[in-house]
Design a protein around this nucleic acid. Structure first.
Length: 504
RNA sequence: GCGGGAGUAGCUCAGCUGGUAGAGCACUACCUUGCCAAGGUAGAUGUCGCGAGUUCGAAUCUCGUCUCCCGCUCCA
């Protein structure tokens, strides 16, 4: 049975070196986590599995690794500067907090009219009313009270605070001298690094539609409430594909990617039955999306929550970043762009006319993937002798340690030396991390490795070095299987083949 | 940001109405012909989350702060 609570996962992660709180010795930093010795192996394995499936094994994909700090104009035209900046107001009486525009929109018509009139805007233009209020925050608080803006929670007129802007993007100054004008943003999604490189990739690879660009990398968001371990964090890692298709073929490609991605999750040990595919309702869609499927994994404690979003971003992004928008017949409503110097078009596969492609975006969180993989792999089992063991039944390609080589007695140099040589030989196969385990006794070593998901333990005993009772076992070792506990005697000469067949 | 709960050894926790910190497990070294957290001997371990205050004296009382958990709010 998979993990029942998030707590037991958090505890295992810390105890065995998967994930630590960031800057812990200084009191910790909310919403940031560090990956430990085993965490980094697991994380790398997940990223490699994704890269292999989506880049190397496809013929229609290119890879990319763009910079994290981006030009402020890139994130203005992407729409993030505006939408990542929601003003919020608090009601001092009820202690509730609302987005200013949501609060105004939910008022009765006469109240809304009063607020709008106070800032000389039309009541139906909520965004403009909100923007006017933000120009004079102190007065805004008075306007809200005077107009009788009610708190839906209490039904009464609230004691409203000044609306304050909440900046969701991390800003940083560029260059050694902090200057008002020389700042950039840490990207809030890796996607924008792909869009601004669209022309570079097309020009350097001669790609034609349909094709995709894949990228794995960090992204940063000033979440208001980082919570739930690595589920909602301010620094995260994404695995994103922007798949470019001819307008009109976008809907079938959207279905294609939904299917591909569910298959991938299954290969990582996250079964379909544990994932709900949510067709995101229109009013919850992001500013760029026409339709989005959210893959909701059934996390312990949290319940169903998003591990991947597969969005149809239409021609919004390339349309936003391109010059000469007017003559391109864009379907998405985009901000006028007089800053970009490039026309982001590609020949239409049938007409050969320049066209701004549509984009299907499968976007998964590495940290969330790791959490989902861990909770599926986590098992507590009662053994035949009544003892309990914790075991991570990770798929072998994801296991942080592939093989532990264990000398049966650690004070016998001939056993330890041979174990060390076997370790070094296996390491050269490139299967991943092989560990020489010479602490504690054999039983403890097995349990330790169960707990971190090591698929195989190789034990060197006295028979191996010809000092046992059975001479026919010389130059053979015991391989112990994590899941079945079964042991098999294998010649050292056959070890590489035996393990490669099962771990690759 | 609000309300509630919590923070003592690597882990789980004890520590009363203030008197200078403890258990189990884990860990380290050595021994063990030993295969599923086995046994023996020896050993190390804490700014009691952090900072102030009260006090002769604070893990214990007060305040502030950080972090974690739960519920709101928010989540492009």
């Amino acid at each position: 049975m998979p993990a029942q609570t998030m707590e037991e996962l958090v505890s295992l992660c810390k105890r065995r070196g998967f994930i630590f709180q960031s800057s812990e010795i200084y009191g910790g930093l909310q919403g940031f986590y560090d990956y430990g010795p085993l965490g980094v192996e697991l994380k790398n394995n997940i990223k490699n599995a994704w890269w292999r499936a989506n880049v190397h094994e496809r013929d229609d994909m290119e890879g990319l690794d763009a910079s994290i700090i981006m030009h402020r104009l890139a994130l203005r035209h992407s729409g993030h500067e505006a939408t990542f900046n929601d003003p919020m107001v608090d009601n001092k009486k009820t202690k509730k907090r609302y987005r200013l525009d949501h609060l105004i929109k939910d008022q009765k018509a006469d109240v809304l009219a009063k607020v709008a009139a106070a800032v000389n805007e039309a009541p139906e233009n909520i965004a403009a009313v909100s923007a006017r209020l933000m120009e004079q925050p102190a007065r805004a608080a008075e306007i809200l009270v005077e107009a009788g803006v009610r708190d839906a929670f209490s039904g009464e007129v609230g004691e409203w605070t000044e609306p304050r802007p909440f900046n969701m993007m991390f800003k940083t100054s560029i260059g050694p001298v902090a200057d008002e004008d020389s700042f950039g943003y840490l990207r809030p999604e890796t996607a924008q690094g792909i869009f601004v490189n669209f022309k570079n990739v097309v020009d350097s690879t001669s790609r034609r539609l349909p094709f995709g660009i894949a990228q794995i990398g960090k992204a940063f968001r000033n979440e208001i409430t980082p919570r739930n371990f690595v589920f909602r964090v301010r620094e995260m890692e994404q695995m994103e594909i922007e798949f470019f298709v001819a307008p009109g073929t976008d809907e079938e490609w959207h279905e294609h990617w939904l299917e591909q991605r569910l298959k991938w999750w299954e290969d990582q040990g996250v079964p379909r039955q544990k994932i709900i595919v949510e067709d995101v309702p229109a009013d919850d869609l992001a500013h760029y999306s026409k339709r989005t499927y959210d893959l909701m994994y059934d996390f312990p404690t949290l319940g169903h929550d998003e591990i991947e979003g597969i969005a149809n971003r239409t021609d919004f992004d390339l349309g936003s970043h391109t010059k000469g928008q007017a003559e391109l017949g864009l379907t998405a409503q985009v901000m006028e762009n007089s800053d970009s110097v490039a026309k982001l078009t590609i020949p239409h596969p049938e007409t050969n006319k320049p066209v701004v492609p549509f984009v299907i975006e499968p976007s998964a969180g590495v940290d969330r993937a790791l959490l989902a993989v861990l909770s599926e792999a986590y098992h507590k089992e009662t053994l035949e002798n009544g003892n309990e063991r914790t075991v991570l039944k990770l798929r072998p390609h994801l296991a942080p340690i592939k093989v532990a080589v264990i000398p049966l007695a650690r004070n016998k140099p001939e056993l330890v030396d041979l174990a060390r040589r076997i370790k070094a030989d296996l390491q050269r196969l490139g299967l991943g991390r092989i560990l020489l385990e010479d602490s504690g006794n054999i039983g403890k070593a097995y349990r330790r490795h169960d707990e971190v998901g090591t698929p195989y333990c190789v034990t060197v005993d006295f028979d191996t070095v010809g000092k046992g009772e059975d001479a026919s076992l010389t130059d053979t070792v015991t391989i112990r299987d994590r899941d079945t506990l079964a042991q098999e005697r294998v010649a050292i000469a056959d070890l590489a083949e035996w393990l490669t067949a099962r771990l690759r």
